[in-house]
């Protein structure tokens, strides 16, 4: 087939991050990734819904 003769299989999305997380957290990587995914989802959903603006407008610490 094309795949086996030409190139390694393309990296699937998230694969790299999974590998990095595995390196950092070992056998607990899946648990930490699940907790992080839930939190990030809440953050993004809240931002979509509420459209918060940065305060202060200019960073205090540059």
């Amino acid at each position: 087939s094309l795949r086996s003769s030409v190139a390694p299989p393309p990296e699937r999305p998230g694969e790299r991050r999974t590998a990095e997380m595995k390196k950092l957290y070992g056998e607990d990587a899946a648990k930490i990734m699940a907790m992080e995914a839930a939190m990030q989802l809440t953050f993004e959903r809240n931002c979509d819904r509420k459209q918060p603006k940065y305060w202060p407008v200019i960073p205090l610490k540059l």
Partner: peptide, 8 residues
């Protein structure tokens, strides 16, 4: 509604 930069 606001976002606070953690660096601040």
């Amino acid at each position: 509604e606001a976002l606070i930069r953690c660096q601040d």
